[in-house]
Nucleic acid binder design. Structure first.
Lengths: 339, 339
DNA sequence: TTGGTGAGTGGGAGCGCTCCCACGAGGGGC
DNA sequence: GCCCCTCGTGGGAGCGCTCCCACTCACCAA
């Protein structure tokens, strides 16, 4: 059933070129001819052959979304699913397609890089959740592939979209301080990621603002997983915090379990704030006070930025930071106040 | 940096054809020539242009994964993330790429269908979680597009991979019966999906085997979401079940909440079995006795089946059913036995 | 009348690849 | 010594499209 331009042209009694013009909405075709051609297209069910078109135009209308270091955690946490979903929607709107690239090992990475980027099958790439030192970024830069990072990247040439992790964390810790807490623990995410670092930085800034000295005993590094939340709290408890800032909701779930096992009630005995506001945050008991990040908008913006970069190359670097918001639920209470 | 075959050929002092043969591992090239060509390829960093190749071979090495009716639920439930992850891995192994197609409205569906399938940009399609009457299937069948369904489909021409939902549900309910339960409620999934129907059918079969009469009051239809679990249990409770079979872990989480609110302890006051064995099943309190389905293998098999179909067309329809397994944890207890 | 202009159209070239056919060289059978 | 066959190689054609250039045909100004 797959016709070519030439055949449609014969059907409409015009030339291949004219059909091409009509299909691509080129202006210089007479109204009458345009009508006839569209009719022939409709009747024959003609669909332009995308591959042939790509060979000439050097565009595939496909963008890749690359998620390096595929830890299973990434996919039990709903962050990526939501990101993927919104990115796809946004692609639909811009008439692009989304190609999924996940890889676990760096051998995979190399392999996929050559296969995709070298191949010229992608118009551009969205890099999600890379570690700060991910070798993918320099490679993309070197090869001049249009790409956008989700999450900030230190290299000034990199376009990125990010949420305000520092501000969000600062807001959360600030809130704890205003509730009277002074010994505030921090259960961080992986500190080789930008958002891991930034959330800790926000914590630090809030303390500084309120002239609370920074205490290393109150900091434990986790890795964003639930189990690291459990373990982290266990390591944190000897320092006797009255509140804990946890770098992700998923970790908070684990933290909550550890606190319960230690016989501590939240928020009566200890306050908890976390980060992300994924569905579990409001579903769990007690519902978590947490920093909401607009994952959907983040993804949409990443796609839009990339599409812009593909279609108008040469526009300079650009960093977009979306605001975060503190959602107050029931995991915090004023220090020392009984119910 | 992107060279063509012709240029590499000049570098190696052979013809375009010979380089093509070498790159595609065609046997009839002398060892010496082959060596020279590979060297030229390596030195020049040549990468075949995939689009040009596709134009000739009519293959893109891209398969689509289509998830219709994009309810948000699909993406808070980890089923799809896990499916996607395993499918991608399996694609990597087979040197295919995975293109993601999600759409919410049927207008989107039509649009995407034309864009992808008509376009000839996909070698084949994996259809995940379609409703039984999804119009996508007849379309694909009509157009002769190679495709595989995840989940059974009534049309005998459809290739599908599925898990044994009936057997799994039967096993779960059987277990409850052996624990002494007779009034067993069923909180079903959407009954316009194959797995929704099948899990109910398994429940039915278990009752029949043990000659327990089927009681409509003990059946409530849900839609696989957490909130439908909560609501469902509330509607079920008046019928006074001593155990409930819930069609998914996600629903069981909601059910658990409703039971707790009703003042019932699991498993002391009421037993619960569910289906899926997603991570939350073992994380929640109490850990759920549930039917494990091998999502990862399901995805891998879908990819393999599709690749086989693409590369060896004409091989007939085929239905693969993977076994399920009952994972016994702590949400069930013998009827009437006190701790 | 002539030349210029611009809108509308057609055809050739070429994107980078694969596939087929042709051709020469070398080897074995008679 | 001749024929045939095989092996290795080169070049042409063509995949379906876009883009450029050239051409025709009003139409209008000089």
């Amino acid at each position: 059933m797959s016709l070519t331009l030439e055949e449609v042209a014969r059907l409409a009694g015009v030339s291949r070129s004219t059909v091409s013009r009509v299909v691509n909405e080129h202006p210089s075709v007479s109204t009458e001819t345009r009508r006839r051609v569209w009719e022939a297209v409709r009747e024959s069910g003609y669909q332009p052959h995308a591959v042939a078109r790509s060979l000439v135009t050097k565009r595939t209308q496909i963008i890749g979304i690359v998620i390096p270091e595929l830890v299973t955690a990434l996919f039990t946490d709903p962050f990526f699913p939501i990101l993927l979903r919104s990115a796809t929607e946004s692609c639909n709107e811009h008439r692009y397609q989304l190609m999924l690239s996940l890889f676990s090992s760096s051998a995979d990475r190399k392999e996929m890089y050559e296969r995709l980027v070298g191949n010229a099958y992608l118009d551009g790439v969205i890099v999600a959740s890379s570690a700060l030192d991910d070798p993918l970024i320099p490679d993309l830069l070197r090869d001049g592939v249009p790409f956008v990072c989700v999450g900030r990247h230190p290299d000034p040439r990199v376009r990125s979209v990010d949420v305000d992790n520092i501000g969000g964390a600062r807001m959360a810790v600030d809130y704890l301080i205003r509730l009277g807490h002074r010994r505030i623990g921090a259960l961080t995410g992986r500190l080789d990621t930008a958002h891991g670092q930034d959330r800790l930085e926000g914590y630090r800034q809030a303390l500084t603002t309120h002239q609370i000295p920074f205490n290393g005993d109150l900091i434990v590094e986790g890795d964003f997983t639930e189990s690291s939340g459990t373990i982290g709290v266990q390591r944190l408890l000897p320092a006797d915090p009255s509140a804990v800032f946890v770098a992700s909701d998923t970790m908070a779930v684990g933290a909550l379990r550890a606190l319960r096992q230690a016989g501590l009630e939240v928020p009566q005995d200890i306050a908890l704030v976390s980060f992300d506001d994924i569905p579990v945050a409001s579903a769990i008991e007690p519902p978590l006070t947490t920093v909401r990040q607009p994952i959907g908008r983040l993804a949409a913006l990443a796609v839009e930025t990339l599409v812009d970069l593909i279609e108008h190359p040469g526009s300079g670097p650009q960093r977009i930071v979306l605001p975060t918001e503190l959602v107050i639920r029931e995991s915090c209470r004023e220090k020392g106040v009984m119910p």
